[in-house]
């Protein structure tokens, strides 16, 4: 797994208030299923989604966001239920369409914090077009990609991030396709902020999500997540601790990777935060345009009245 040459960013500025006990965070942000009422977490035991969920909750808490001002937008996958475990409003529709829906929500309600919860397949297979175009538009939403290398909900088929030669239910002889790099695609499509983290690096995950939400513009956090049940078991890592150890042993920070030779970082997960060039944010640009049109400063162009573009 490699990442295109982009400068690793400094750790995002964050509030230094004393962290609240997790119980308080849960009370305010969480809608924790209650066994007594016949509801329980729908994740497999040891699933990395639990760590990711609490990291998202902690990031909300650190940023002191009101649940009423948060909308999570989900797609299809094991993580799809996550939105209902928060007190925030949730939109959950077609598989892969979260970035499209999130774009519209943010355009209509710029005051809301819009976070999409998507899987690797959701964001980069069935929903790849919405992902890259939301990045190109630089709409101020945060896309969280739970990357477990596999289609978990349907029982472990390969997806767009499945590493070559690994075994899945639909690559029984080993995966022959190449995989996507989530951070590369995000930055290449125009995202101003992209981060990669793993379920082993839980504190880093909180900071990465916090930075993404704070970033004005399109931001992506790729969470490398363990699916030991459907991917690990087929690839020599049958338990959650096996996979956490794998992430621990094979991750290096972007700052450290920058000092190493390319061959030394081959096959490693480079975790960290990258920033792209600053680009105008769609919502702000649209609202400025509306103001100019309504103020009579600009009229719809007549045919042939445009100018050649200033090329960057």
């Amino acid at each position: 797994m490699t990442t295109i040459e982009a400068s690793p960013a400094a750790a995002p500025a964050r509030k230094r208030s004393a962290p609240k006990p997790m119980e308080e965070t849960i009370e305010f942000y969480g809608n924790v299923p209650n066994e007594n009422e016949g509801k329980h977490f729908r994740y497999c035991p040891g699933c990395g989604l639990g760590i990711a969920q609490s990291a998202i909750m902690r990031a909300f808490e650190r940023l002191e966001l009101d649940p009423k001002e948060i909308v999570t937008v989900g797609g299809s996958g094991c993580y799809a239920v996550m939105g209902s475990y928060y007190q925030a409003s949730q939109a959950h529709m077609g598989h892969g369409r979260a970035a499209a829906m999130g774009t519209a929500i943010k355009l209509c309600r710029p005051d809301l914090t819009v976070v999409t919860l998507q899987g690797d397949g959701d964001a980069l297979a069935i929903g790849a077009q919405h992902f890259v175009h939301a990045a190109r538009r630089n709409i101020d939403i945060t896309v969280i990609v739970f990357n477990n290398f596999v289609y978990g909900e349907t029982g472990g088929q390969h997806g767009p991030t499945t590493p070559r030669e690994t075994i899945t239910q639909t690559s029984p002889y080993g995966m022959v396709e190449n995989d996507f790099d989530v951070v590369d695609i995000a930055l290449g499509s125009g995202a101003g902020y992209a981060a990669r983290t793993t379920v082993y690096h839980a504190q880093h995950m909180v900071r990465a999500i916090e930075g993404a939400i704070q970033h004005k513009g399109f931001s992506v956090v790729e969470i490398l997540q363990n699916c030991h049940e459907l991917w690990g078991k087929r690839n020599g890592m049958p338990t959650a601790p096996d996979m956490l150890k794998w992430y621990k042993d094979n991750s290096i920070t972007a700052a450290r990777a920058a000092k190493l030779e390319p061959e030394d970082i081959l096959g490693k997960f480079i975790i960290g935060t990258w920033t792209g060039p600053e680009r105008p944010e769609l919502g702000e640009e649209w609202r400025k345009l509306v103001d100019r049109v309504q103020g009579g400063e600009v009229e719809a162009a007549k045919r042939g009245s445009g100018k050649p573009p200033a090329l960057a």
Binding site: V71, V73, A91, M93, G94, M101, G102, A104, I105
Partner: peptide, 8 residues
């Protein structure tokens, strides 16, 4: 889907 997002 954008239309539905806006409608929400």
């Amino acid at each position: 889907h954008a239309v539905m997002g806006a409608s929400l």
